[in-house]
Write a protein that binds this DNA or RNA. Structure first.
Lengths: 193, 193
DNA sequence: TATTTGTTTCAAAAAATACTGAAAACAATG
DNA sequence: CATTGTTTTCAGTATTTTTTGAAACAAATA
């Protein structure tokens, strides 16, 4: 079939082809992980595309490159904006909106951690707290007539809440803008064998 | 309807009812998180049930309590065994297999981290490495005729691999049996404000 | 204000995923 | 090795999630 788009096939054809293949392979690879992270395949692929090209693309370019519908592209891009790992951009003399991915990998994962704490960990802590209160408020002093079974149940939930609160606090530190320094700390810590 | 099972309704009825409700609430709550973690709702619920009751239950008890089919229960339990957060147990004079959840919350998350590194992070590192090699092997010395675009592409993937390798190494330390000590370290680190 | 261009929404369709239930495989016991 | 009790498998079905595409909406232009 003939190419309907006037694609920029500058430079030696071999090189250009290879980079496009590498990009496509990355998009597919990133998309495969989507299931494990609780996001849709398309959302992961759109992010992968923006990240790996490093360019600011508009909705039509994303649709064309990933062969997806307009609605799907629109929703995926909006979700990525909400996650804070993609931002809007504009080009002079063009009314279309362009989208670009955060290029700093550490900044990108700080944003992801921030968002997952907010969406998953914190609501879970709140819920477990509520459930915990069903079987007696946490207070050492009260020598109430609590069955051994209830006591164990309470201890299990307390331990869980404690764990998630630690995760939340650690995550917050990592995710905060000041958390930048953690990049160095983490790499050092990881290396010590 | 009449209760077909001779359930152990020992103790004051009020107390027993409350703990059952708290357990059910926890099962539901834990089940809700399943989507975000890429596992099925049932698998999360089965784990929640075993964790929150602290008991060793057999397949029929799990089926009855969660109102799920035998096949579903069997597959969920096996998956949990593979994750290493549930183990088999046996009762004297009973041919059925019983299942119990890891009760130490930190040990449980060490197992989860270990498994997720193995299933998700490490394969991803391998894949990105392959993709990276499509556009030239990593070697500073080679003053090859590489386009600026390719150079940037390579840098992006290198940064990503580097990040995931750091995560993998940090995770391994946390997940290792020796990582036990990290529990204390993490709690301390989280508290410093 | 009408027109043109671009974006969002959402009901319906498609695709992916999870669940059931019954049969097969397996294991313990006499 | 036949019987009985238990677990696993898997084809078919049900449910949930994702995607499409067209209408509604919004913003800029003439």
């Amino acid at each position: 079939m003939e190419s309907p788009t006037g694609d920029n096939q500058i430079g030696p054809q071999g090189t250009e082809t290879t980079i496009r293949e590498a990009q496509d392979a990355f998009v597919a690879s990133w998309g495969q992980m989507s299931g494990a992270w609780g996001i849709s395949r398309t959302m992961a692929e759109v992010h992968a595309l923006l990240f790996v090209t490093g360019e600011a693309l508009n909705t039509d370019e994303v649709m064309e490159r990933l062969q997806i519908s307009r609605g799907n592209a629109s929703m995926s891009l909006r979700a990525l904006l909400e996650w804070g790992i993609v931002s809007k951009a504009h080009k002079r003399g063009d009314r279309k909106e362009y989208f670009q991915a955060e290029q700093d990998v550490w900044a990108m994962f700080r944003a992801i951690v921030r968002e997952r704490l907010k969406r998953e960990v914190e609501p879970l802590i709140a819920q477990i707290h509520e459930i915990r209160d069903l079987t007696g408020v946490k207070q050492k002093g009260k020598a109430d007539a609590i069955s051994a079974e209830t006591h164990l149940h309470n201890e299990r939930l307390d331990e869980l809440v404690d764990f998630f609160m630690t995760v939340d606090q650690l995550g917050q530190r990592f995710a905060s803008p000041q958390g930048r320094g953690l990049r160095v700390a983490a790499k050092m810590l990881a290396k010590i064998s």
